[in-house]
């Protein structure tokens, strides 16, 4: 029995090695089928969770796009990204002055101002961190692994600054109860949720325009495709690095703020956020911004729907297992299609 199983596994591994394209295609197709089934089930049975998943997915997407851009252009896994998101959220908390409300939303124009402040602080701050930490390592020719460990150091520092300044307890932008409204198909939504999705969509459209309609975007994509070729073609690599940090940092700030609006702020959350962020980026194919968006939607929806559907075995029905769902997706993608849904081979 055991022998039969191991030899079957070995045979599958063998086939995968001998026919990589076929294995890749089957892997991709089975992932699409799996997520398709999940989508159908959630439309029929768990619409509320599906909608929450879309909200969470659009927040994760903003972070995952940053991770995938940094990975593509600077060629290393940025482990400080989750803490950068949280840091952005806290900067906005600091800059948030004045109450008031815009229409049905729970916050006023002060929040819009705070979002811009946080984007600016994180955008400039990312360049500063790059100058102090990553650039010297890069110029020394350090491997991507060393840069990744340096980013762990940066993550610890950012986390400590948040703890030092704002303390370890969770905080809210606006306290009080904000009732949800009824929508067709038994869906309940708060006006804030619509704000979150709309903001994320606007930013993603801007990133799309920047990447595909400007010269800098073209340079960034060229760096991501082939750094040496881009350098030979006369692209100013340091300038491209700078812009990548500005975009990644600003998107992270907004993602953190939207997460704060959706739930709450807590310094501890930053490091744990890395799991859904990287799961999304890898699922979409590292280096592909469109992929990161699709990956984030899949991760966000799966997380919410799986813990929403009440089956008698884990991880179903237990909200605490949301990270486990993201982890499961990560392992699945590494097993069946390591290049991701839209990544290059």
């Amino acid at each position: 029995m055991v022998q039969a199983v191991t030899s079957a596994v070995a045979r599958v591994a063998r086939i995968r090695q001998d026919y990589p394209q076929i294995a890749d295609a089957i892997g991709g197709a089975s992932l699409w089928v799996l997520f398709g089934v999940l989508l159908v089930v959630s439309v029929i049975d768990a619409r509320q969770y599906l909608v929450t998943g879309i909200i969470v997915g659009s927040i994760i997407a903003l972070g995952a796009i940053g991770i995938t851009l940094i990975y593509g252009v600077l060629k290393f896994a940025h482990f400080a990204h989750g803490d950068m998101m949280m840091f952005g959220a806290y900067v906005a908390l600091f800059a948030l002055v004045g109450g008031g409300r815009i229409g049905p939303l729970s916050f006023g124009w002060g929040m819009i101002f705070a979002i811009f402040v946080a984007m600016a602080v994180l955008g400039v701050g990312s360049i500063a961190i790059d100058r102090v930490v990553y650039r010297p390592l890069r110029q020394r020719g350090s491997s991507s692994v060393v840069l990744a460990i340096a980013s762990l150091g940066v993550a610890i520092v950012l986390r400590a600054i948040m703890l030092l300044w704002w303390g370890p307890d969770q905080q809210l932008y606006v306290s009080g109860i904000h009732p949800a409204r009824e929508f067709p198909f038994d869906i309940k939504l708060k006006p804030d949720h619509i704000f979150i999705v709309a903001t994320a969509l606007v930013l993603m459209a801007l990133v799309y325009l920047l990447l595909f309609r400007t010269k800098m975007g073209k340079a960034m994509r060229a760096m991501s495709d082939n750094a040496d070729l881009a350098r030979v073609a006369g692209i100013d690599t340091e300038l491209v690095f700078m812009w990548t940090w500005v975009i990644g940092g600003a998107l992270a700030a907004v993602a953190g703020i939207l997460l704060g609006i959706q739930s709450n702020l807590k310094p501890e959350l930053g490091f744990i956020l890395l799991l859904p962020l990287f799961a999304s980026a890898i699922l979409g194919g590292l280096g592909s911004p469109q992929g990161a968006l699709v990956g984030a939607m899949i991760v966000g929806i799966s997380q919410e729907v799986v813990v929403g559907i009440d089956l008698p075995f884990p991880p179903f029905g237990v909200p605490g297992y949301k990270p486990a769902v993201a982890f499961g997706i990560l392992i699945l993608i590494l097993l069946v299609r390591p290049r991701g849904l839209f990544g290059r081979t």
Binding site: A77, A148, L275, A279, I282, Y321, F327, I331
Partner: peptide, 22 residues
């Protein structure tokens, strides 16, 4: 290498959740 780093972060978090939830 980076994939292993993410996977280990994931395992750590999932184990902690399992210890709490089960």
């Amino acid at each position: 290498e980076d994939y292993l780093a993410i996977a280990t972060i994931g395992v750590a978090e999932v184990f902690r959740r399992i210890a709490i939830e089960e």
